[in-house]
């Protein structure tokens, strides 16, 4: 094992997340079908909002707010999945 390869990989993930403002804002496949087939209005808002729609609240610049949301999410997911895997892993190595 080379040392800390995953740290490099994690930094690459953060870099990927910082491209998020360039993402297409067109409806995705399911939203497109829901619009075309007339059931998009059935969708309900969440009862609470934390970082809704990947825009961090309170930041005026939307591109920056999206990048901040992306960096937070990427870091949270790395930590949560690493933590769960560490807790679940068997005692035997391999």
């Amino acid at each position: 094992m080379k040392k800390k390869w995953w740290l490099v990989a994690f930094l690459v993930c953060l870099a990927v997340a910082s491209f998020s403002p360039l993402a297409s804002s067109s409806p995705d496949g399911l939203e497109r079908v829901a619009e075309d087939k007339g059931f998009i209005d059935l969708g309900q808002e969440s009862p609470f909002q934390i970082i809704a729609d990947y825009v961090f609240p309170g930041i005026e610049n939307e591109a920056l707010a999206t990048i901040v949301a992306g960096l937070i999410g990427t870091t949270v997911l790395f930590g949560v999945a690493y933590g769960i895997a560490w807790l679940v892993k068997t005692k035997a190595s391999g």
Partner: peptide, 9 residues
């Protein structure tokens, strides 16, 4: 951890 982070991003 890396895959979860990458998939989210």
């Amino acid at each position: 951890g890396v895959l979860a982070a990458f998939i989210f991003a």
